[in-house]
């Protein structure tokens, strides 16, 4: 898929673990893992909003379009 989720990059920048993020955004580890590994087919605005809030970033920091 040409849309890449840079969740791991943002987590590294904020020095935040998956467990910590899971607690902050109130999401299951399994769902965050789906996002992190790029298996996700879609993302809800509410999830994106929660992630942006927890990681103090913009949606563009999490999502990237690659022409490949």
């Amino acid at each position: 898929m040409p849309i890449v989720i840079n969740l791991d990059v943002m987590m590294a920048r904020r020095k935040m673990s998956l467990n910590e993020l899971s607690g902050k955004v109130d999401m299951a580890l399994a769902n965050l893992s789906i996002l992190k590994t790029g298996k996700a087919k879609a993302i809800r605005f509410s999830t994106l909003e929660a992630l942006c809030k927890a990681l103090e970033c913009q949606p563009g920091d999490l999502l990237e379009y690659t022409d490949s």
Binding site: M27, N31, L32, I34, L35, K39, A40, K41, A42, I43, R44, T47
Partner: peptide, 8 residues
């Protein structure tokens, strides 16, 4: 169903 399951 698979798409729905992989919607986070």
């Amino acid at each position: 169903q698979r798409e729905n399951e992989l919607t986070v």
